[in-house]
Design a protein around this nucleic acid. Structure first.
Lengths: 143, 143
DNA sequence: ATCTATGCAAACATTTTGCAGGCTG
DNA sequence: CAGCCTGCAAAATGTTTGCATAGAT
């Protein structure tokens, strides 16, 4: 889990200015470990930065994703952002919609496989769907 | 690789009617092993079915995805459809944009891992990005 | 004959773009 | 104070919806 200072350093390193909007978003990202959409971040940020716009949020998120400090994937018609930069499984519950990170060493062979085919590997996203423990149980109880 | 008859059987099994538009799309899917968007299928289908609309293409694709005979994933702001129903790696080249299927048995441990956490597993998508052999080489040559 | 599927258009949702003014470095 | 960043509005893109008619069984 990265600290706020690492995002700030990332901005400086890439000659980007430090603005209140950017600091607020960094705070949101660090306080809110997990997965979020631009809209979600925007809604939360507006509490402390009432003039911020969605376009600005997208701008800032683009900086972080293009420098690789944030990952993105698409799901349910939106782009999602996440702070976990190691390749891992994103398990999405079809019941409650929650996204759970599952870290595992078992992914290494997959990357090797990609390279065996002659490709280079830069990044990846693994989405797996099903029902989480809680939702699976409540569905069982309905029988 | 599924045959046209299997898509037709799938329609019948689910009490869906066999229409020319559906047959054309099935033909497109079977002739065109790989990955496609609704728009791509629509553009091609219009050659033989000039009155077909994008909405109809979406309708038909929804039938096939909800019955599980087609997979979907989101990428580059669109939904993509694919005929390979076994969980596999979709390798996306950041150079030419081509999507390559990489089938591997190494995925089984990942599914096990999902279940170990108490979740059920229904489907998954693995997207990996980098440069394909050809694009990696042409980028090297630029140095 | 019934009921679903299609075609069309409009609605919707998400993301991007263009530009004038404001703020950072 | 130069240039990047923000806020705003509009545009662009992709997908869904509602409804009247055509078509499959």
């Amino acid at each position: 889990m990265l600290q706020e200072s690492e995002y700030i350093r990332n901005l400086r390193q890439n000659q980007h200015k430090i603005t209140p909007q950017r600091l607020s978003l960094i705070k949101y990202i660090c306080d809110n470990e997990g997965h979020f959409t631009a809209e979600e971040a925007f809604t939360k940020l507006r509490e402390s930065e009432p003039t911020i716009t969605l376009a600005t949020v997208y701008n800032i998120l683009k900086i972080f994703t293009s420098s690789g400090i944030l990952n993105t994937f698409e799901h349910k018609g939106s782009r999602w952002f996440e702070t976990n930069s190691a390749l891992h499984i994103n398990f999405i519950c079809d019941g409650c919609g929650k996204i759970e990170d599952i870290d595992t060493a078992d992914i290494t062979p997959l990357i090797r496989k990609v390279r065996e085919s002659g490709n280079t590997f830069t990044s990846g996203t693994i989405l797996m769907r099903g029902y989480c423990k809680k939702c699976a149980k409540s569905r069982e109880d309905h029988h």
